[in-house]
Simulated assay, not measured.
Amino acid sequence: MSNIAVHRVDKPGVLPDESKLGFGKIFADHMFVMDYETGKGWHNPRIEPYAQFPLYPAAMVYHYGQAIFEGMKAFRTVDNRIVVFRPKDYLNRFNRSAEILCIPKIDVDLVHEGLNKLIEIDKHWVPGSLGTALYIRPFIIATDAYVGVKSSDTYKLFIITSPVGAYYAAGFNPVKIKVEDKYVRAVPGGIGEAKTPGNYAASLRAGVEAKKEGFDQVLWLDGIERRYIEEVGTMNIFFKIRGELITPALNGSILAGITRRTVLEIAKELGIPAVERRISIDEVFAAHAKGELEEVFGSGTAAVISPVGQLTWKGQTIVVNDNKTGEISQKLFEYVTGLQYGKIADKHGWVAEVTKL
């Protein structure tokens, strides 16, 4: 066990009404922090009160965007345990983002230990209603006070947590998606597969325009031919065509979603045909015209499974499954959330228990 120092708040906060949590606006009492310095490595792991922290205006993260983050969730199960879903898979992906952004890799076991300790201290912030969770946000920023393009020699790692409700205000209902044909988010060979702020900044303009037009999200096409489907702004995407689940193959510009991987593994277990391959927007619209497009849904940590009811591309709109949640979407949602809330036995080793109250 590592020596993780703990400095607690004087007066713990109170979890608000679970029906009014929203997403990402309320934060728990404490955060996990660790520092990095070239020649010294990652050091000084600690838990301290959630608060502002000092940073020079010349800190490199502000000027050159060298930063990464992750997102995972802790749940209060039906038998009152607190669990985190696939934490080490998320932390290993965190290291993949670090590699892409030239940030020193973390010791996954040490950070996992710090995360467990953090949640144990703030366990009263984990809500218990179905659809709620404690969202976990690890992130690393470059802190060198230097206005020049290079990899930083100093970094800070933080883990903050936030009690959350459903990601979409509409809840588990089909969403309206705009297929983006004007803007480009990422290309293979770039940083599209990393969870880094620049990727999300690149999506903002298209997202703002789509919201003004009445859409919930944007579906990105490849940045070269503008034909092949990649991912939604906050989710990977699946299409059920003629009984088969199809999701775009990872190509260097698509995030390797942990929920995406979970869906593929569950589909195999349930005997649902599922493939990873290139799929064009033309193929999807053609399948709809033939009556062969049976379901569309997104998968992601925040939304879990999000059924898609409408797709609009170049002014043409198709309605999927009469704008209703499909059978497979429902089944996958119930399976994943069943694991997360302890309603279904975990035979995969995905659910890591933090503490029993």
Rank of each mutant, 00 (worst) to 15 (best):
I272D: 00
P273M: 07
E294M: 05
P307K: 13
R278S: 09
A289Q: 15
F285K: 13
D282S: 05
P273V: 05
A274F: 02
E294W: 05
P273Q: 06
S299T: 14
E269K: 15
E283T: 09
V308P: 01
R277T: 12
G309E: 13
V284S: 02
I281V: 15
H288A: 10
R278P: 00
S299K: 01
G309P: 14
S280W: 04
D282M: 04
G271P: 03
D282H: 10
G298Y: 05
A289Y: 06
E295A: 07
I279M: 01
F297T: 10
K290Q: 14
V304H: 01
G271Y: 11
V296L: 03
L270D: 12
I279C: 01
L270V: 06
E295P: 11
H288D: 13
D282F: 11
L293A: 08
E295G: 07
E295K: 11
E269V: 09
V308N: 08
E292S: 12
G300C: 11
G309C: 13
A289G: 07
A287H: 01
H288Q: 06
P273L: 05
E283C: 08
A302N: 15
D282Q: 10
R278M: 10
I279G: 06
A286G: 01
L293M: 08
K290I: 03
A274H: 06
A286F: 09
I281Q: 03
P273N: 08
S299V: 13
S280P: 01
V296E: 02
A286T: 09
A287Q: 07
E283A: 10
E294L: 05
V275E: 09
R278A: 07
A289W: 00
F297V: 12
G300K: 12
I281T: 10
V308I: 15
I281A: 13
G271S: 02
H288V: 06
A286L: 12
S306Y: 05
L293S: 09
G271Q: 09
S306L: 11
G298N: 05
A287N: 03
P307Q: 10
G271V: 09
E276A: 07
S299W: 02
E276H: 07
G309H: 13
A287K: 04
E292W: 14
A286K: 13
S306W: 02
V296P: 01
V308A: 13
S280I: 03
G298F: 02
G298I: 10
E292M: 09
V275Y: 09
Q310I: 02
E294V: 06
V308K: 06
Q310H: 14
V308Q: 01
I272F: 05
A286W: 06
I281H: 08
Q310P: 01
R277P: 07
S280K: 03
E292K: 12
E283D: 13
I305N: 04
I305P: 01
G300N: 09
I305H: 15
A286R: 14
A287W: 07
I279Y: 01
G271E: 12
E295Q: 09
P307A: 10
E295F: 09
F297A: 12
A303T: 11
H288R: 03
V275T: 15
S306D: 02
Q310T: 14
H288I: 06
A302P: 13
V284Y: 00
S306Q: 13
A289I: 01
I305Y: 15
G291S: 05
E269A: 12
E292N: 12
P273S: 04
A303Y: 11
Q310G: 02
E283W: 11
G309K: 14
S299E: 04
